[in-house]
Design a protein around this nucleic acid. Structure first.
Lengths: 160, 160
DNA sequence: CAGTTTGTTCATTAAATTCTGAACAATCTG
DNA sequence: CAGATTGTTCAGAATTTAATGAACAAACTG
């Protein structure tokens, strides 16, 4: 079957496909969220594959990703055994979920890395050491500022 | 030749390779900026290819990208005909350049797209129209907020 | 100006990413 | 419980993206 997408649906999906690109998420994840976002009714895997013309694997995998940061909500549909979903439309919630799942894990890494770099700096030969120390300090400054920006940006998205 | 990278150099480059990934820039761009960032001396294409063990094409192309948003500064080296570069270490300047080159151009697109979507909304059948209108309004709200955040974030990076 | 040196471009190759679909496991149904 | 339905997983295919290196153009050199 091929319940073709309307022009409007295509436009909206296109927006979310681009956003997915920026966030380094697969195209199909953008498509899935996009179609759910403008669909008044909850949709199940079957609906989604047919509507978007993507495979069952992509659909299942894509929904898994969307669920992982709360971009999609499971919905009970009476008399149907299948799982239905709607798009979570609260930006705050999605962003929080995304940050916690995809961003936060990497921040720990960075601290370790920085510690290791500082240690290596000690072994550097005198000539270069001075310059390199300055650069590493600078890098730490950037990191600190980025870390400070994050909660602020989150707070910025306070409205629903 | 293979003037192997030191442990410290590898660690620092690794940081910038990750950053490149987040920004959807090629790995080699991160490598190039990373080695320049940690090198006291300006470097030319030849130095860079040897040090990073990447091709001349990648090096030239990568420097072109870095120059395009001012992440790299050309430096005159007496008695050498080749082009030398150092890393621009002012975060403010790099971010401003990046935003202007890679972000701003896309913002115009979005406006057009939104206009088109609003137009398509008019043709929607009464039942769905109400819901979809709400969603599109929401989308516009997000967009507006993102646009407001941008200059604020830029200002946040005011120190050198 | 003939011969180098240097940087860029771009068609091809290589690598990384995403999608597919069949096999499977889990759950329901009569 | 036999059969059907539903969702997940993952090896392989398809697609996308980045790297390579040879051909080229531009600028220098003697």
């Amino acid at each position: 079957m091929h319940t073709a997408l309307s022009e409007l649906e295509k436009e909206v999906i296109d927006i979310f496909v681009r956003i997915a690109g920026v966030l380094s998420l697969p195209r199909s994840v953008g498509e899935l969220y996009g179609i759910l976002f403008i669909s008044p009714e909850p949709m199940c895997i079957d609906d989604l594959m047919r509507k978007l013309n993507i495979s069952k694997g992509s659909t299942s995998q894509g929904l898994k990703i969307l669920r992982s940061f709360g971009a999609v909500n499971p919905v009970y549909v009476a008399g149907d055994r299948r799982d239905f979903f709607t798009a979570e439309a609260g930006l705050r919630r999605i962003v929080a979920g995304f940050v916690n799942e995809q961003i936060r894990p990497q921040l720990d890494n960075r601290k370790d890395r920085m510690a290791r770099i500082e240690k290596l700096l000690g072994q550097e030969e005198p000539g270069r050491k001075e310059f390199i120390a300055e650069r590493i300090e600078r890098l730490q400054g950037w990191q600190k500022r980025a870390n400070a920006l994050l909660p602020f940006a989150l707070n910025f998205i306070k409205a629903e």
